[in-house]
Design a protein around this nucleic acid. Sequence first.
DNA 1: TTTCTTTCTTGTCTTTTGTAAACGTTTTTT
DNA 2: AAAAAACGTTTACAAAAGACAAGAAAGAAA
Lengths: 192, 192
Amino acid sequence: MTEQFFTYTDKFVNFRQADKELLASAMSFRHVKTKTDLVSYDKRTDELFFLLKGCLRKYYIKDGQQITIYITAENSFIGAFDSFITGTACKEIIETLEPSELLVLNKKDLDKLYKDIPLMNEFVRKILEQTLIQFQQALTSFILDSPEERYTKLLSQNPEILQRVPQHMLATYLGITATSLSRIRKRIVEKS
Amino acid sequence: MTEQFFTYTDKFVNFRQADKELLASAMSFRHVKTKTDLVSYDKRTDELFFLLKGCLRKYYIKDGQQITIYITAENSFIGAFDSFITGTACKEIIETLEPSELLVLNKKDLDKLYKDIPLMNEFVRKILEQTLIQFQQALTSFILDSPEERYTKLLSQNPEILQRVPQHMLATYLGITATSLSRIRKRIVEKS
DNA sequence: TTTCTTTCTTGTCTTTTGTAAACGTTTTTT
DNA sequence: AAAAAACGTTTACAAAAGACAAGAAAGAAA
C-alpha cells in the first residue's frame, strides 16, 4: 500500500528506512467512493491527499455553475493548498470522480515530519518545483493558446483522462462551455 | 543593498548571521538598463534573479507576436524555472521594463547553499508555497473570470503596475489583444 | 427491462474577441 | 529640433464563444 507511495518519493529524495517508517505512520489510508467531497466549500482543510488509485477534480461554483479547475489521477498530491497553508476557508471543492484510494496527511503531522525528517523540506521543495513548472505551463497555455489548441494538447498529452472524465467537466477545465467543446470536437473531426 | 533582500528572507525563515553571509557572498549585484534580456530565447539559463528595484516581464513569441505571460516588480524572485530546474533550453524571454537592480544567484551556487545552509530547503520550500498559491489564483482567474473581470481585478489588486507597464503588454498578460483591452476600458468608462 | 438521470449534440441568436489597417498622440532617439 | 519608433484608440469585418432551449444518446438505478 505504501510501496506505491515510496516509488513516488524515490524519484525525489532517498529517504532512509527510518524516515519511511515515520512517513508511513503519519499517513492514513482512506477508501472513498465516487462523488465524495474531500474538501468542502467554505471550510478550512488541514489535509493533503496522495492519490493511490482513482480520479479527483477540484472545482469552484460560479453563478451556480460548477467550474472544474483541476483534474488529476494516480500518483499525485492534491489539496486545497491555499487553505492548507494559510489556514483560511477554502472556496474550492475537491471531489472524487471514481472510487478512490488515498493516503491522507494531516498538517500537524506534516509539521512534525519537517522537524523529524531532515530530508522532508528537500522532498517537498522538489515536489513544489515540479508542480510549479506544471502550473506555469498550464497558465501559459491559457494565455498563449486558443481553446481548440488547449483541447488538442490535452488530447495528446493526457488521452487517458478523456475516457475517465465527463466532457462538460473537461470543458470548464479548458475555460469554455460544454457547448463550445462539443463544437470544437466537431470542427476537428470535420478537418480530418 | 542586501538588507533589502534579508528583509524579504526574514518573512520566511530566521537565517543566522553566518547563513546570511554565505547567501550574500553567493549572490552578485547587477545593474541593468531598460530592455535588457536576462533570459534569452532558446538558451539555457542557470540564473535566478531577485528584483531589488525596477520591473520585469516574461514573454513568449507566438506567430511573431510578443505575448507577455508574467510581470513583476520589486522584491520578488523571477527566473525561467523550467530551464533552470530541468536544464532545457527555455522558450521564454525575460526582459527589464525599467532600469533595474538585481541580485543574481547561480544554480551551482544555489546547490552549494542547499548543502551549506540547513534552512535553505525550508526557505525555498516556503517561497515556492507562496508562489504556487499565486499561480493557482492566476490560473483559476483564467478559467473562472471573463477578460473584463480579470482586468478589473488587476486594477484593484495591483493598480501601480498599470502605470509602469504599456497597455498592450497588459493586454496579452490578460490573455486578450490590445484592441480588445481598449474596448473593455471604454466599456467600463461608459458604465460609470 | 424500464425508468430516470446524466451527458452530449445541435440550432438560433447575441455578445465578445480577433485581425488588419488607419490615425493621432506620445515618447524616444538621433 | 527633427525624425523615428512606440503606443493607444478606433473602425469594419470575420470568427468564435456564450446563453438558452430542445432533443438524442448513453449510463445508472429501480
